[in-house]
């Protein structure tokens, strides 16, 4: 099944949000339309974390914060061998945490072909 991540666009002023807020940060509006949030993004910063929380059976995980072309910044997992700030990455959607009976899907930033 294809999963998609979305941004929430204020129906009144057009401001984009991710994640969803109840009230628009710019105009105070309360109605939002979902728009796809995908594709290429710029890696702003990243880390490799070795002391992972309970539930992860891995020696480390990469994380990054990226900026999409529409200006939205989001955090996600990072699967790039040699990350560098400023590089272009591609955002895919996949399982980011395995849960009992419910897996969590989110952004994983990968090398741009």
């Amino acid at each position: 099944m294809d999963r998609e991540m979305v941004a929430y666009q204020c129906s009144r002023c057009g401001e984009l949000h991710h994640p969803l807020h109840y009230v628009c940060r710019k105009c105070g509006g309360r109605d939002f339309a979902e728009v796809p949030l995908r594709g290429e993004a710029t890696l702003l910063t990243w880390t490799k974390v070795y002391n992972l929380p309970e539930g992860y059976m891995k020696p480390f995980l990469g994380f990054g914060i990226v900026e999409f072309g529409n200006g939205l910044r989001v955090a996600g997992q990072l699967e790039v061998d040699q990350p560098e700030c400023g590089m272009k990455v591609r955002a895919k959607v996949d399982v980011v945490r395995e849960g009992i009976g419910q897996d969590y899907y989110g952004f994983i930033f990968i090398q741009k072909e």
Binding site: G76, Y104, F107
Partner: peptide, 9 residues
């Protein structure tokens, strides 16, 4: 959703 679910700490 935007942070904890990713394993972010």
């Amino acid at each position: 959703e935007a942070e904890y679910a990713y394993g972010l700490t």
